[in-house]
Design a protein around this nucleic acid. Structure first.
Lengths: 212, 212
DNA sequence: CGTTATCTTGATAAGTCTCAATGCAAGTGG
DNA sequence: CCACTTGCATTGAGACTTATCAAGATAACG
């Protein structure tokens, strides 16, 4: 039992300095049905799987900035309850197709099981280590290696769906710092950037050394 | 079915510049029985509850530093599997008494349920926001408020069990920065430090404003 | 009472953010 | 079709925060 949904990019123009999204998930209003803190009822949409495209999980901060806690690519699953519990939203980075899974009515059900939670905890733990002790160069190296795996299936050349601003909010850096470190890596010969969205990893080993 | 264990401080002197623990949990070797990645077998110790004292959850980093992901106080529970999965260890900050819970043999069982995982994810999410976007002063304010709740039950005066080094590794700062910000808060009249371990919050409202 | 670890403070260096300006590409309306 | 707008990417200059290195102060302990 699942519903396939097409999510299109929304061109709602939101002032840039708020650092909020310029493209809002069109289906977001539908998902809000399950945002309340009440236990989900039978039929509430409680989980999402990406079929196509790229999404981001955003959390607004008190100072008006935002944090992106994850990007979602095809085959990735996420619990909408988990996102909603932390005041988050799911937004479309590109147009995307997703499957939405309704609750089977069990209390607290979001279609996720202990293994999935353990995996999520592991991913967050890794992000904790990264945010705590990596500098900008190391964060970017780790990010590119992660994207190489998740977008390109480990290929050296892949296309980043997200903007420098998205990357900055994911790595907790300013977009300028992200940009400067892209430039540095290119001039160090680690990367090539045929265009600003396309990344080619030229020397994976040193990149792994930096990003580990 | 549970085993109560007394954990004493171990005085293994480890050179300070490694930033590793100076007090190692004596029972640690016993806990390693359940560290393997195999599913726990009936009788393996898979969860811990603190009865008395203070523990820390430590994770060594590749550069030799460590990250403390949590402090544990009486009534806190933790999954040993979760700790072990991330190469972590549990160490005694003070002498402590804990209960250890054996697995009932269910696959992947650590005595924790979905609600508990959700709570853990929430706590980590909060830490993520903190590490990403708070400066040293804000981190320390948030830390003190957290400790006031967890140690002192919300009282304004409480005693920190952990050293400045522990606090630094928890907040991902240098101990010097932690120290300086203690001093600053005292000279700003927010805090009093009768001795370096005892904290008295003099003005909670501004502290909450900073730490939020 | 010396030894040791911890806490504190200072000086300096390094890294990152902020503010500002420019370039570029895509879309819009006349 | 072309000026115009808009958002994103890039680069520079300066300020600010934090880490690092160093040294002194304090407290705990044998």
């Amino acid at each position: 039992m699942e519903a396939a949904v097409l999510i299109r990019q929304d061109v709602t123009a939101i002032p840039r300095d708020t650092r909020t999204s310029t493209r809002t998930i069109a289906v977001e209003r539908r998902l809000r049905r399950s945002e309340a803190l009440r236990p989900p009822e039978r039929g509430d949409l409680v989980a999402l799987r990406v079929l196509e495209g790229c999404l981001r999980v955003c959390h607004p901060l008190l100072d008006g900035r935002r944090q992106i806690t994850d990007f979602l690519f095809p085959q990735d699953r996420i619990s909408l309850m988990e996102v909603r519990c932390h005041n988050g939203s799911i937004e479309a980075v590109t147009s995307a197709r997703v499957s939405l899974f309704p609750s089977d009515g069990l209390d607290g059900d979001d279609g996720m099981h202990a293994d999935h939670y353990r995996a999520r905890l592991g991913a967050m733990q890794a992000r904790l280590f990264m945010l705590g002790h990596k500098n900008a160069r190391e964060k970017l190296a780790a990010f590119l290696l992660e994207m190489s795996d998740r977008i390109g299936g480990g290929e050296d050349t892949f296309r980043l769906a997200m903007s420098r601003y998205d990357i900055a909010d994911y790595l907790c850096l300013s977009p300028e710092t992200v940009c400067r470190n892209f430039t540095l890596m290119v001039s160090d010969g680690l990367l090539a950037l045929p265009d600003s969205q396309t990344v080619r990893i030229l020397h994976r080993a040193p990149l792994e050394f930096i990003g580990r």
